[in-house]
Computed example of a mutant assay.
Amino acid sequence: MAESREHTFAGVRGVNTVREWPHDRPRYVVILIHGYGEHIGRHEHVADRLVRHGAAVYGMDHVGHGKSEGDRALIEDFEDVVTDVRTVEERARRDHPGVPLVVIGHSMGGMIAARYAQLHGTGLAALVLSAPVIGEWEVVSTLLALDEIPGIPLDPAMLSRDPSVGAAAAAEPLVWHGPFKRPTLEAFTAALTTLAEGGTFGALPTLWVHGEDDPLVPLGPSRGGIDTVRGTDLSERIYPGGRHEGFNETNKDEVLDDVTSFIDRALTARARGVSEW
């Protein structure tokens, strides 16, 4: 795996930890945004692949996640997380001035990345959304309707057809294994509404990847959300049989090949000043 280092910064709601996978002469920079209840370390293999492809990679543990401060798995306002991602971007741009920047977000991180693109997309070279929470997510309204949110653990089989992925997540101490917290669910509701009303991605080259059989963030509702915010430059890859974590699926090499090929096309088009798709 590529070497990495950590640093911290004062986020909106506490001290956040950022992991950086450096590259001496990167062709592009990636801001990698993780999903709910996990941490950026679960995406180390993704960062490694991107570094070998020519990227410097930065990824933050969100407030309440991983090594960052805050009550576990508690996010009260996703706009604050977007602001923290902006701080990471500013650090990356100081480290690598003039280098094209790509944002990649998975699941909840895809929702955050989509909102980030609405606010700051003109400064990005490309956007990748992996199984994004976007559009309607029925689990949120279902849980909010209950008087008490049950502490039913996530079925690890939802993540990947590879059973070792779920087993590793279930044993990971930095992964949250408790119930959703009501303020976090309310924040999801507000964020999805904000996204739906926040406009499109314009001409930003965007790749949407999703498992066809994703039981956690179903394909259909996400498609509706994508159709609402998509700009003029959307590519999609839907993987038959794929579950929630495409980057950890049995065909993860194919998924990462698609991501890196898309980034190559986006960077080439950016250099030429034209769109190729």
Rank of each mutant, 00 (worst) to 15 (best):
F9N: 10
P153W: 12
G151K: 09
A145T: 11
R182H: 08
N16E: 07
F247N: 10
K252V: 00
Y58W: 14
A187L: 08
V82W: 05
A190H: 11
W21L: 04
M111T: 04
T260L: 04
D162Q: 06
W176K: 01
M111K: 02
L144E: 06
G70Q: 10
G246N: 12
I149Q: 06
T8P: 00
Q118R: 08
L256M: 15
M1T: 13
I226L: 14
T17C: 14
P173S: 08
P173Y: 11
D227K: 13
H53Q: 06
I226S: 04
L219W: 11
M111D: 03
K252D: 00
E138W: 11
G105I: 11
D264V: 09
G105P: 09
I226N: 01
T184L: 09
G225R: 06
G135K: 04
D95Q: 14
G211I: 07
P179L: 10
L174H: 10
S222E: 02
W176T: 04
T142I: 09
V103F: 11
H39Q: 07
A10I: 03
V29N: 05
M111H: 01
V165K: 01
A131N: 08
V133E: 02
D24Y: 00
T122F: 01
D155E: 13
S130N: 12
S130Y: 01
V18P: 05
L50V: 10
V29Q: 10
T200S: 15
A10T: 14
A73W: 03
V81R: 02
I112Q: 02
K252H: 09
F201V: 08
E197D: 15
E136V: 15
S222A: 15
V274Q: 09
E254K: 02
E38R: 01
G231K: 11
V29A: 09
A126C: 10
D213G: 00
H45S: 10
L204K: 09
H177A: 13
G224Q: 12
A56M: 11
V140K: 14
L127D: 08
G220F: 01
W176F: 15
L195D: 03
V140M: 12
R27D: 15
A56V: 13
S235N: 03
R19Y: 00
F262G: 05
D48W: 03
G178T: 06
V229P: 07
R265V: 13
A125S: 15
E90V: 07
N248W: 04
E90W: 02
K181F: 12
L207N: 06
Q118D: 04
V103W: 11
H7C: 06
F262I: 11
V51Q: 09
K181C: 00
L154S: 08
V46D: 06
E3D: 13
L204M: 06
P218L: 07
P153Q: 07
I263R: 01
K67H: 14
W208C: 00
T87C: 05
L256Q: 14
